[in-house]
Amino acid sequence: MNKDLDKKVPLLEVRDLETAFKIDGQYHNAVDKVSFTVDRGKIVGVVGESGCGKSVMSLSIMKLLPKGAGEILGGEVIFDGKNIEHLSEKEMNKIRGKDISMIFQEPMTSLNPVFTIGYQIEEVLHNHFNISKQDARNQSIKLLKSVGISRAEQVVNEYPHQLSGGMRQRVMIAMAIACQPKLLIADEPTTALDVTVQAQILDLLKDVQSVNDMAIILITHDLGVVAEICDEVIVMYAGEIVERSDVRSLFKNPKHPYTQQLMNSIPKLDAEEEKLGSIKGIVPSLKEMPRVGCKFANRCPKAMPECTEITPVLAEDEKGHEVSCLLFEASKTEEGTKIT
């Protein structure tokens, strides 16, 4: 009964999140009014080129933005029915690592070189539970085994420099799931690893997710990874969500020209063209970002004159596939035209 109720309320709801960087006294939005929800037990992929605001968004959710670099200007982050955007640092510390945890891109640098693996896993446990040293040690061995490290009893006494990249990422995952969080944010967890290890880590993430019934936000620029394990996909461009749908419908029918171009740039075995597709140009820097119109317009092959005049909005079609592009009537709203 209770579970049904839980299922209806999304685990994480982000509303109009705005994170900006101050450059020469002016605010420039790196994350621009992003709204989305994450349901319990779902894996949501966030894709986009480098510089699209994916990482800044995830750091904003955890309130981990480094001081002086990036400020949350507005919006709400509602986690498990609680608005966590206004929590103090102290209260936030109780949530971090316990209810929401994070895996980082670089397994080589995300473990502290002067402590043993066991010590670092136990630290999470000691931070959030009143647990004895022996229990914590047993628990950390169990965790290491659950992420597929066979010599767990030895590894707890080893230092990060003695492990390979893949093993370190496994340790990071063990740390992240130590307190059985409800949400795991994985910021490009496989980018720094080689392809075979990538597949193993993705499998592991999926296993861990189904065992603990947690939700994962998987940030990546690899559409292959998304296709493999995600339930839902959010495509981000220049700090905005341009398309959002379930995985099947996105891969079958990508609507936004940006998504289409991203898919074109994946090498295909059966493709006849010799050249791999690429998207012309780069993501404009924060200072050059157009304030009116579609931000992708200058790189878009299907750009129309009105694209630089009307700002499209994210609109849903009947199947729940959301897209923000003027090629679709729904994106042209009063709101958009008013700005011009």
């Binding site: 955890m62 981990l64 102290k90 510390n93 109780k94 949530i95 971090r96 690592g97 316990k98 945890s101 994070m102 980082f104 891109q105 670089e106 640098t109 995300s110 473990l111 502290n112 070189p113 630290e123 999470v124 931070n127 959030h128 990071m172 740390m175």
Partner: peptide, 13 residues
């Protein structure tokens, strides 16, 4: 270094 971010992300003061 990322391990400092990681330390904060597991709830260290």
């Amino acid at each position: 270094n990322e391990y400092i971010l990681a330390a904060i992300s597991i709830g260290c003061k």
